[in-house]
Simulated scan of single mutants.
Amino acid sequence: MFGKARLAFTNGVLSTQWLSRALEDAGIKVGQRDKIRAELQRPGSKIRAYLHGEVPDVLTSLMKRAKAEGGTVRLALYELGDDELCKAIIDAEDVVEVILSNSGRDEQTKAWDAGNAPFRKRLRDAGVVLTDRLFNNNHIGHNKFAV
């Protein structure tokens, strides 16, 4: 914490050695994509908590502060695949603006933006101010910040 500014880092899925051991301890084999995805989405998962670090708390505290003090939170995200964060954004729709990049091409279905598309729709349907940052190639806008 620096004055009113906070920052947080995730541990990310790139912590492969730790993640492969943690998945094994949870009875999930590397390569079981659906089980891994479900574990990463499950509230209360120790793996999920380790990977996301303090980021959810920082983001939700910013939105609570904006509501209390009459501010606005501007989020720039390249992936939004988390139900809890999506719900928090929707709950704060009157004080939040989002720039959401496209996710990459799904390896199995070959669908473009398959990861972000359902969350993009949920935000739009809820009335969240949303700006699309879409690339028409294999690139993604690698934004990750909140102001």
Rank of each mutant, 00 (worst) to 15 (best):
R6F: 09
L7K: 14
L7M: 12
A8D: 04
A8V: 04
A8W: 03
T10P: 00
T10S: 13
N11I: 05
N11T: 03
N11W: 06
N11R: 11
N11M: 10
G12W: 03
G12E: 11
G12I: 06
G12Q: 09
G12C: 10
V13T: 12
L14Y: 13
L14G: 09
S15I: 00
Q17H: 07
Q17S: 07
W18Y: 05
W18Q: 07
L19V: 04
S20T: 08
S20P: 02
S20W: 14
R21C: 06
R21A: 05
R21D: 03
R21L: 05
R21F: 03
A22Q: 00
A22N: 01
L23M: 10
L23T: 02
L23S: 04
L23V: 08
E24V: 10
E24W: 11
D25W: 14
D25M: 14
D25Q: 11
D25H: 15
A26G: 03
G27Q: 04
G27C: 07
G27S: 06
I28F: 12
K29S: 10
K29H: 14
K29Q: 13
V30C: 11
V30L: 15
G31S: 05
G31A: 04
G31P: 01
Q32T: 13
Q32N: 09
Q32Y: 09
D34M: 13
D34S: 12
K35T: 05
K35W: 09
K35C: 07
I36N: 08
I36C: 06
A38K: 11
E39L: 09
E39C: 08
E39G: 06
E39M: 08
E39I: 04
L40D: 05
L40C: 07
L40W: 05
Q41A: 14
Q41W: 11
Q41C: 14
R42D: 03
R42L: 02
R42Y: 03
R42H: 02
P43L: 11
P43W: 01
P43V: 06
G44M: 03
G44Y: 00
G44L: 01
S45W: 00
S45F: 02
S45G: 05
S45P: 00
S45Y: 01
S45R: 01
K46V: 04
K46F: 06
I47S: 03
I47Q: 01
I47Y: 02
R48Y: 01
R48A: 02
R48T: 02
A49K: 06
Y50L: 14
Y50D: 05
Y50H: 15
L51P: 01
L51S: 08
H52P: 00
H52G: 15
G53I: 10
G53C: 07
G53T: 10
E54C: 15
E54K: 15
V55L: 12
D57M: 15
V58S: 11
V58F: 06
V58T: 12
V58P: 00
V58L: 15
V58G: 08
L59M: 06
L59W: 01
